[in-house]
Design a protein around this nucleic acid. Structure first.
Lengths: 252, 252
DNA sequence: CAGTGGTCTAGACCACAAG
DNA sequence: TTGTGGTCTAGACCACTGA
């Protein structure tokens, strides 16, 4: 007898599983609904738990599932469109800025950042820690590096409160005005501290957005390294119009 | 006796391994160098191969390693900065366009795209398949959807060659001029066909760039869905100046 | 406490590239 | 044919959540 399947491409088990479960999510599950636990699912599909997990990992990477230790696996809502650059997010600290300052210290930045800033390798700069919320969820953490030269009027910083220090630096920065910005997006994995802020485990996939802000004369006035949750975020650029992702379509 | 380690955070094995290997890559390996195979590495570190692999996966996700079946694991070159939008990549088909058309058919687009285009759910549109190379490597595959209404002068398309058809559509599109564009970036995993084009396995992490091109009157004239290799690419936006990533710093 | 997902093991076999 | 990374298994234990 021939195989009942046509001689198609050899498909791995977890890939096929991912497809099957993905289709089931579209047709049989609502957002927020809890899936059976991994052991049951694995048994139901007749595979080892590790294989089932490989499929779930893929679906989580694509933002279709959300897994939380001690709780379970739920159907994720569509990714939220998070505006990056443009509208209300141009110059750090401008009105409507989506970022919420959390702290400000003076530190020697990583060599990467120092090079972008054009500061010396052992020169301390202001480091603002900021976080960004959306619909009540943390979506991004970032570090904003501001060289002392960019905010010359801050002679004596003896403000005890970090948040206040942050606001002062931002205000100074805002007074400067700016000429443009530069942006790069790449895939990364959450460091331990970012992971904590983003309510994820270390190593979770994140979108790393590095922005250079140019002051007058083309000098780099500040550099921001933002870490967005890759599972829940879709970064949008230019244009204020929101548009819908595949998931939002499915949900409606 | 107390533990010789300070009571630090409990760190998983693979995470620690990732850190150790990552540091070794910085100090003891050159770009392109081949690492020992997974079985040897696992034995050397006294862990199961699966655990070792978990660490390597992280490093590959961060673009620091490249693994190829049947070949081995090599130290990856720094991610290449790939310009998206702006300079020479504005309107599809404009001079200096980095995309190379490969084919053109007429198909009914996925519902997601149809909605973005504002076409009917069962209306066929031109589908241009394009690919993008960089330094001799494929970095992205994309599908450009062009509604028939956007290129009205193509009454009878009986051109046999797909590439030629693609060029004709692009030329028509170019004659229209455009008013702006809209972009979104999110994490995805490579479909089987994209994976083949990008020389990766299915499910490989990719950066999904969805672009809406607006014609005169704010109408959506075309939609492009581009799939960039997340391991080798850093997407850059705005500003023609290239800047260096952490890895480029390490390499220099 | 019971139940979840996260980590880890020690094996096996498969698909692929290159000699 | 050999050696590589990729897949898969069946089990164990851990870390965390919430009742």
């Amino acid at each position: 007898m021939g195989t009942t399947q046509l001689e198609t491409a050899p498909e791995t088990k977890y890939w096929h599983l991912k497809t099957v479960i993905g289709e089931a999510l579209d047709s049989e599950f609502a957002v927020g609904e809890i899936l059976p636990n991994e052991r049951d699912l694995a048994a139901r599909f007749g595979v080892a738990r590790a294989t089932l997990r490989q499929a779930l990992e893929q679906l989580e990477l694509e933002g279709r599932l959300q897994r939380r230790r001690g709780v379970g696996t739920t159907v994720a809502p569509p990714r939220m469109g998070v505006a990056v650059g443009a509208a209300g997010n141009g110059w750090p600290g401008s009105s409507g800025d989506a970022w919420q300052p959390a702290d400000c210290t003076q530190e020697i930045p990583p060599a990467v950042v120092a090079e972008l800033l054009g500061t010396g390798a052992d020169e301390a700069v202001h480091v603002l820690r900021r976080s960004r919320m959306y619909s009540g969820q943390p979506v991004a953490a970032d570090l904003l590096y501001v060289p002392a030269a960019s905010v010359p009027d801050l002679s004596a910083i003896d403000i005890p409160d970090g948040v206040t220090r942050a606001r002062v630096v931002l205000r100074e920065l805002q007074l400067l005005g700016f000429e443009g910005e530069d942006r790069a997006v790449e895939l990364g994995s959450a460091r331990a501290d970012d992971a904590r802020q983003l309510d994820r485990l270390p190593g979770a996939p994140v979108l790393l957005v590095t922005t250079r802000y140019f002051g007058h004369g083309g000098r780099t006035a500040a550099v921001s390294v933002a870490t967005y949750r890759a599972d829940t975020c879709r970064l949008t650029f230019g244009g204020d119009v929101e548009f819908h992702s595949e998931q939002e379509r499915r949900a409606s």
